[in-house]
Protein backbone atom coordinates (compact mmCIF):
# COMPACT_ATOMS: atom_id res chain seq x y z
CA UNK A 1 0.00 0.00 0.00
CA UNK A 2 1.30 3.40 -0.98
CA UNK A 3 1.44 6.22 1.54
CA UNK A 4 1.07 9.77 0.35
CA UNK A 5 4.05 11.69 1.75
CA UNK A 6 3.98 14.77 -0.43
CA UNK A 7 1.28 16.51 -2.39
CA UNK A 8 1.95 19.62 -4.36
CA UNK A 9 -0.34 22.37 -3.01
CA UNK A 10 -3.20 23.31 -5.35
CA UNK A 11 -2.33 26.94 -4.71
CA UNK A 12 0.99 26.47 -6.50
CA UNK A 13 0.95 26.42 -10.30
CA UNK A 14 1.69 22.96 -11.69
CA UNK A 15 4.52 24.30 -13.85
CA UNK A 16 5.49 27.12 -11.49
CA UNK A 17 9.01 26.04 -10.63
CA UNK A 18 10.82 28.23 -8.14
CA UNK A 19 13.68 30.15 -9.70
CA UNK A 20 15.52 31.06 -6.52
CA UNK A 21 19.22 30.54 -5.78
CA UNK A 22 20.33 27.37 -3.94
CA UNK A 23 19.78 27.75 -0.20
CA UNK A 24 17.40 30.70 -0.57
CA UNK A 25 14.50 30.84 1.89
CA UNK A 26 11.82 32.18 -0.43
CA UNK A 27 10.71 28.84 -1.85
CA UNK A 28 10.21 27.34 1.59
CA UNK A 29 7.99 30.22 2.71
CA UNK A 30 6.01 30.41 -0.53
CA UNK A 31 5.25 26.71 -0.28
CA UNK A 32 4.11 27.04 3.32
CA UNK A 33 1.80 29.88 2.31
CA UNK A 34 0.37 27.76 -0.52
CA UNK A 35 -0.14 24.83 1.88
CA UNK A 36 -1.98 27.05 4.35
CA UNK A 37 -4.20 28.53 1.66
CA UNK A 38 -5.10 24.97 0.67
CA UNK A 39 -5.63 23.92 4.30
CA UNK A 40 -7.98 26.83 4.94
CA UNK A 41 -9.65 26.34 1.53
CA UNK A 42 -8.94 29.98 0.69
CA UNK A 43 -7.70 29.65 -2.89
CA UNK A 44 -10.89 30.90 -4.52
CA UNK A 45 -11.03 33.94 -2.23
CA UNK A 46 -7.38 34.95 -2.08
CA UNK A 47 -5.73 37.99 -3.62
CA UNK A 48 -1.96 38.07 -3.14
CA UNK A 49 0.06 41.26 -3.47
CA UNK A 50 3.61 40.96 -4.71
CA UNK A 51 6.33 43.51 -4.09
CA UNK A 52 9.69 44.47 -5.57
CA UNK A 53 12.75 42.30 -5.02
CA UNK A 54 13.09 38.52 -5.08
CA UNK A 55 9.51 38.55 -3.76
CA UNK A 56 8.17 39.89 -7.05
CA UNK A 57 7.22 36.90 -9.18
CA UNK A 58 4.25 35.55 -7.24
CA UNK A 59 2.17 35.03 -10.36
CA UNK A 60 4.87 32.71 -11.73
CA UNK A 61 4.46 30.37 -8.74
CA UNK A 62 1.03 30.81 -7.19
CA UNK A 63 -2.22 29.55 -8.67
CA UNK A 64 -3.82 32.64 -7.12
CA UNK A 65 -4.99 36.07 -8.23
CA UNK A 66 -2.04 38.43 -7.89
CA UNK A 67 -1.79 42.22 -7.84
CA UNK A 68 1.67 43.69 -8.35
CA UNK A 69 2.76 46.67 -6.27
CA UNK A 70 5.48 49.24 -6.74
CA UNK A 71 8.47 49.15 -4.41
CA UNK A 72 7.29 49.51 -0.81
CA UNK A 73 3.59 49.98 -1.54
CA UNK A 74 2.22 46.44 -1.22
CA UNK A 75 0.38 47.16 2.01
CA UNK A 76 -1.30 50.19 0.38
CA UNK A 77 -2.48 48.07 -2.54
CA UNK A 78 -3.62 45.43 -0.05
CA UNK A 79 -5.50 48.10 1.92
CA UNK A 80 -7.30 49.24 -1.22
CA UNK A 81 -8.27 45.67 -2.09
CA UNK A 82 -9.34 44.59 1.38
CA UNK A 83 -11.37 47.74 2.04
CA UNK A 84 -13.49 47.27 -1.05
CA UNK A 85 -13.55 43.46 -0.92
CA UNK A 86 -13.59 42.69 2.82
CA UNK A 87 -14.64 39.08 2.22
CA UNK A 88 -11.42 38.28 0.34
CA UNK A 89 -8.28 36.89 1.94
CA UNK A 90 -5.54 39.43 1.23
CA UNK A 91 -1.86 39.05 1.97
CA UNK A 92 1.32 40.84 0.97
CA UNK A 93 4.61 39.08 0.36
CA UNK A 94 7.58 41.39 0.76
CA UNK A 95 11.27 41.47 1.56
CA UNK A 96 13.19 43.61 4.03
CA UNK A 97 14.15 46.04 1.27
CA UNK A 98 10.49 46.50 0.42
CA UNK A 99 8.61 46.33 3.73
CA UNK A 100 11.30 47.53 6.15
CA UNK A 101 13.28 49.98 4.02
CA UNK A 102 11.50 51.88 1.23
CA UNK A 103 8.04 50.89 2.47
CA UNK A 104 8.37 50.91 6.24
CA UNK A 105 6.19 54.01 6.58
CA UNK A 106 3.45 52.15 4.74
CA UNK A 107 3.99 49.05 6.87
CA UNK A 108 3.67 51.05 10.09
CA UNK A 109 0.59 52.99 8.99
CA UNK A 110 -1.11 49.83 7.76
CA UNK A 111 -0.44 48.35 11.20
CA UNK A 112 -1.72 51.47 12.96
CA UNK A 113 -4.92 51.44 10.92
CA UNK A 114 -5.37 47.81 11.91
CA UNK A 115 -6.00 46.72 8.34
CA UNK A 116 -7.33 43.20 8.20
CA UNK A 117 -4.53 41.90 6.04
CA UNK A 118 -1.56 39.60 6.53
CA UNK A 119 1.97 40.72 5.72
CA UNK A 120 4.79 38.23 5.30
CA UNK A 121 8.22 39.88 5.26
CA UNK A 122 11.23 37.83 4.30
CA UNK A 123 14.24 39.32 6.09
CA UNK A 124 17.53 38.24 4.56
CA UNK A 125 19.20 41.49 5.65
CA UNK A 126 20.07 42.73 2.18
CA UNK A 127 18.69 43.76 -1.20
CA UNK A 128 18.91 40.35 -2.80
CA UNK A 129 17.61 40.90 -6.31
CA UNK A 130 19.81 43.90 -7.05
CA UNK A 131 22.92 42.02 -6.00
CA UNK A 132 23.30 42.28 -2.25
CA UNK A 133 23.35 45.90 -1.13
CA UNK A 134 22.80 46.92 2.50
CA UNK A 135 19.17 47.35 3.59
CA UNK A 136 17.60 48.79 6.72
CA UNK A 137 17.88 45.42 8.49
CA UNK A 138 21.54 44.76 7.60
CA UNK A 139 23.54 43.86 10.67
CA UNK A 140 26.30 46.08 11.99
CA UNK A 141 29.48 44.59 10.62
CA UNK A 142 27.70 42.72 7.78
CA UNK A 143 29.58 42.84 4.50
CA UNK A 144 27.42 43.85 1.54
CA UNK A 145 28.23 45.39 -1.82
CA UNK A 146 27.56 48.86 -0.40
CA UNK A 147 29.28 48.12 2.92
CA UNK A 148 32.35 46.23 1.69
CA UNK A 149 34.15 46.84 5.00
CA UNK A 150 31.06 45.81 6.96
CA UNK A 151 28.15 48.03 8.03
CA UNK A 152 29.49 50.73 10.33
CA UNK A 153 26.95 52.14 12.78
CA UNK A 154 28.64 55.55 12.86
CA UNK A 155 28.15 55.86 9.09
CA UNK A 156 24.86 54.11 8.33
CA UNK A 157 23.25 53.56 11.72
CA UNK A 158 21.72 50.43 13.17
CA UNK A 159 19.47 47.66 11.88
CA UNK A 160 15.73 48.22 11.98
CA UNK A 161 13.77 45.69 14.03
CA UNK A 162 10.57 45.43 12.07
CA UNK A 163 8.55 42.86 14.01
CA UNK A 164 9.21 44.62 17.34
CA UNK A 165 8.18 48.04 15.96
CA UNK A 166 5.08 46.69 14.23
CA UNK A 167 4.12 45.03 17.54
CA UNK A 168 4.00 48.48 19.17
CA UNK A 169 1.21 49.62 16.82
CA UNK A 170 -2.25 49.49 18.38
CA UNK A 171 -3.83 48.11 15.22
CA UNK A 172 -1.48 45.10 15.16
CA UNK A 173 -3.10 41.89 16.33
CA UNK A 174 -0.10 39.66 15.79
CA UNK A 175 3.58 40.26 15.16
CA UNK A 176 6.23 37.58 15.20
CA UNK A 177 9.70 36.81 13.91
CA UNK A 178 10.57 33.28 12.89
CA UNK A 179 13.69 31.74 11.35
CA UNK A 180 13.60 28.92 8.80
CA UNK A 181 16.88 27.37 9.87
CA UNK A 182 15.83 23.73 10.29
CA UNK A 183 12.78 21.47 10.09
CA UNK A 184 11.71 22.27 13.63
CA UNK A 185 11.92 26.00 13.06
CA UNK A 186 10.23 25.73 9.67
CA UNK A 187 7.31 24.06 11.46
CA UNK A 188 7.30 26.93 13.97
CA UNK A 189 7.33 29.40 11.11
CA UNK A 190 4.32 27.67 9.60
CA UNK A 191 2.52 27.90 12.93
CA UNK A 192 3.19 31.67 12.97
CA UNK A 193 1.92 32.02 9.39
CA UNK A 194 -1.14 29.97 10.30
CA UNK A 195 -1.81 32.28 13.22
CA UNK A 196 -1.41 35.33 10.98
CA UNK A 197 -3.92 33.84 8.55
CA UNK A 198 -6.43 33.08 11.30
CA UNK A 199 -6.11 36.62 12.67
CA UNK A 200 -7.27 37.97 9.32
CA UNK A 201 -9.99 35.38 8.91
CA UNK A 202 -11.38 36.36 12.31
CA UNK A 203 -11.05 40.08 11.50
CA UNK A 204 -8.88 40.76 14.55
CA UNK A 205 -6.42 43.25 13.04
CA UNK A 206 -3.12 43.47 11.23
CA UNK A 207 -0.95 40.34 11.25
CA UNK A 208 2.77 40.50 10.54
CA UNK A 209 5.25 37.67 10.22
CA UNK A 210 8.93 38.45 9.69
CA UNK A 211 10.79 35.42 8.42
CA UNK A 212 14.57 35.33 8.78
CA UNK A 213 15.84 33.62 5.67
CA UNK A 214 19.23 32.90 4.18
CA UNK A 215 20.65 34.58 1.10
CA UNK A 216 23.74 32.43 0.50
CA UNK A 217 24.50 33.99 -2.88
CA UNK A 218 24.80 37.52 -1.58
CA UNK A 219 26.18 36.50 1.80
CA UNK A 220 28.92 34.65 -0.14
CA UNK A 221 28.38 31.50 1.88
CA UNK A 222 27.51 27.90 1.21
CA UNK A 223 23.85 27.17 2.11
CA UNK A 224 24.85 25.24 5.23
CA UNK A 225 27.17 28.05 6.35
CA UNK A 226 24.40 30.56 5.79
CA UNK A 227 22.11 28.60 8.14
CA UNK A 228 24.84 28.58 10.79
CA UNK A 229 25.35 32.32 10.30
CA UNK A 230 21.62 32.92 10.80
CA UNK A 231 21.61 30.90 14.03
CA UNK A 232 24.83 32.30 15.44
CA UNK A 233 24.78 35.89 14.21
CA UNK A 234 21.53 37.09 12.60
CA UNK A 235 19.30 35.80 15.41
CA UNK A 236 21.37 37.58 18.04
CA UNK A 237 20.43 40.89 16.37
CA UNK A 238 16.96 39.95 15.11
CA UNK A 239 15.75 37.50 17.78
CA UNK A 240 12.90 35.14 17.01
CA UNK A 241 9.77 35.48 19.08
CA UNK A 242 6.13 36.52 19.24
CA UNK A 243 6.08 40.22 20.04
CA UNK A 244 2.33 40.62 20.04
CA UNK A 245 -0.58 38.23 20.00
CA UNK A 246 -3.89 39.70 21.05
CA UNK A 247 -5.49 36.26 21.11
CA UNK A 248 -3.14 35.32 23.96
CA UNK A 249 -3.57 38.62 25.77
CA UNK A 250 -7.32 38.29 25.85
CA UNK A 251 -7.21 34.79 27.34
Amino acid sequence: METLVYKRPESLLKDGHFTFCPGCGHGVVLRMIAELIDEFNLQKDTIAISSVGCSIFLEKFFNLDVAGASHGRSTCVATGIKRCKPDKFVFTYQGDGDAATIGFNETIHTACRGEHITTVMINNTNFGMTGGQASATTLVGQVTTTTPMGRKAELTGYPLHAAEIVAKCDGTAYSARVAITDTKNIRKAKEALKKAFEIQMKGQGFAFVEVLAACPTNWHMKPAEAIEYMENVTETVHPVGVFKDITKETI
Binding site: A67, A69, R73, V77, A78, G80, K82, C84, K85, E106
Partner: peptide
Protein backbone atom coordinates in the same frame (compact mmCIF):
# COMPACT_ATOMS: atom_id res chain seq x y z
CA UNK B 1 2.25 57.64 -2.39
CA UNK B 2 -0.01 55.61 -0.16
CA UNK B 3 -3.21 57.25 -1.48
CA UNK B 4 -2.60 56.44 -5.11
CA UNK B 5 -1.42 52.92 -4.31
CA UNK B 6 -4.64 52.33 -2.37
CA UNK B 7 -6.48 53.51 -5.48
CA UNK B 8 -4.50 50.87 -7.37
CA UNK B 9 -5.64 48.19 -4.93
CA UNK B 10 -9.28 49.17 -5.35
CA UNK B 11 -8.79 49.48 -9.11
CA UNK B 12 -7.46 45.94 -9.46
CA UNK B 13 -10.81 44.70 -8.15
Amino acid sequence: LASINMVIGAGTT
